[in-house]
Design a protein around this nucleic acid. Structure first.
Lengths: 170, 170
DNA sequence: GCCAACTTTCACAAAATTGTGAATCAAGCG
DNA sequence: CGCTTGATTCACAATTTTGTGAAAGTTGGC
């Protein structure tokens, strides 16, 4: 239970990792700059970064940062905060990033379901395509219903983990 | 329980819907042509389309189709079949599209988890960023474990639905 | 109310993506 | 075997996307 805090950050390696992480996000469909911003926030010890700091670490213009954070804010992947008595925004990941992300994405599932129902009506409810599409809709509705349960299970799981072994090396 | 089969397909409306559906996929991060191909297959009564038919309905070149189906095949969103005694490929969605898609995506979850663990090591396991990243990894591992249960529940749910009310006009 | 510190917007240039046509390749069938 | 149908690859052109610099907007604080 020692020798874990004070290892100095290898900024070079970290930056490289972050860029790779961003590339994975890009491969998953995200635009590049938002992906880089997200990755930068992920690997930051302070937990938050200002627009200027993002521009500095990513070697990008304020304009590019502005666009990226606007997008990330819209899709609820980051929070924009402003400390009272300052006029610079600071950006941070949500606590329990992925969990809160999924929770917010909930609406998207419903959207797809509704969209597919609409499509089923258009192709004809009784047709093979209609059948396929309402099955699809039902699938989305199903996972929409199941999701909260899984997320709650995660919350419990996390709590358990926190109780035993507060140190949690490895 | 009548008047549902023989409504003629309004091809114009269907095509329009399919293009809209494709646009949604694009918004979700998919490249345009694969999205259009997927949508076209989704709304097809026959359940399958040849490359030539895809080119025709989408007004796209064989080359574009070839690229799109290669991609879709790779990410396991469609199947490519060839009937014996023919040399043209026919493409179709999997049965229970989204379910099989999720099952195949399973590996991706593990990939992200592993990637995040690696990152946690790089930034330092004891650091705030390291904590954030191994928490993230754990989250992915968790849903990776939970997923099969949910998918099985879906299978049961679907079976139930099939048993009662085979017609399902609701 | 004005100044300064930040952020956003806009027009544009650079760069990456996409789809095309033409050529090449593969394979069933006579 | 060669012919014919169909799929794939390649170089290229067109479109779209991205990021930049500069100008304009906001908003705290004096």
């Amino acid at each position: 239970m020692d020798a874990m805090n004070d290892t100095p950050r290898d900024e070079r390696a970290i930056r490289e990792y972050a860029e790779g992480f961003a590339s994975n996000l890009v491969a998953a469909g995200m635009a590049r700059m938002p992906a880089r911003v997200f990755a930068a926030l992920l690997v930051t010890d302070g937990g938050s970064l200002t627009a200027a700091e993002l521009a500095e670490t990513l070697q990008a213009s304020p304009a590019a940062i502005s666009g990226a954070v606007r997008y990330l804010t819209q899709v609820d992947m980051i929070r924009r905060d402003r400390e009272p008595g300052s006029r610079r925004d600071v950006f941070r990941l949500y606590d329990d990033i992925w969990d809160s992300l999924l929770r917010r994405r909930d609406a998207i599932l419903r959207m797809w379901a509704a969209n597919l129902r609409e499509g089923a009506a258009i192709v004809g409810a009784g047709s093979p395509a209609g059948k396929r599409m309402s099955d699809s809709a039902e699938y989305f509705e199903f996972v929409h219903r199941e999701l909260p349960g899984v997320l709650d299970a995660w919350a419990r799981h996390k709590e358990d983990r926190a109780k035993k072994g507060l140190d949690a090396a490895q």
